[in-house]
Amino acid sequence: MKERLDEQTMALRASREFKDGMIVNLGFGIPTLAANFIPEDKEVIFHAENGCLGYGPTPTSEEEEDFHLVNATGTFATPKPGMCFFDHADSFSMIRGRHIDLCILGGLQVSEKGDLANWATAVGRVGNIGGAMDLAFGAYHLIVVLTHTTKTGEPKILKQCTYPLTAPRCVNLIITDISVIEVTPDGLVLKERAPDWEVEEIQALTEPKLKVADDLKQMEL
């Protein structure tokens, strides 16, 4: 078995998409970890659906834990100069109104058209939709981070999603544990491959046909 990127390394790769001055929203799971990799020369403001802009990292001690300051995953955050609070209606005005520059979400499936399924594995089941749907519809730029295949080796990048959609045609970039793939009007374009992974091997684990970027490169980690 070839080595795949672990969660921290996928989060590190996702953090490379942070640009100076961006307002960024991070979803549950691996995306949240990307907050730990902000380059020192860049200022990034994090948005939390529950009504905060500009919060700081997770507390390192119990003394710093404040029940009046939690992020959208329900974990404690810390205050930071410039931080502000607002209510849920305002928070989702920011999201739907396209004021969030970049959103990084986890995913269960992504289609070749950029459809995302990330909240339920079957129609009719109760799932935690949360704010994911609003973010998928509203974020200016959407990155999905997920493992390339399921635990049993089935592709998660499909011609069509089989799980209930979060939003159709919303994903711009897919970061997996073996590749970086851009969603374009002409289909999926393989931009980067993990160390030691060949194009054919990535294609074999992807249902739709991948175009290969002219400047395909190995992921820089």
Binding site: A89, F92, I95, V126, G127, I129, A132, M133, D134
Partner: peptide
């Protein structure tokens, strides 16, 4: 009985 609503739509319907 459980009815799910996307979070932003829930907020806006209440608003």
């Amino acid at each position: 009985e459980v009815e799910m609503i996307p979070q932003g739509t829930l907020a806006e319907r209440i608003r």
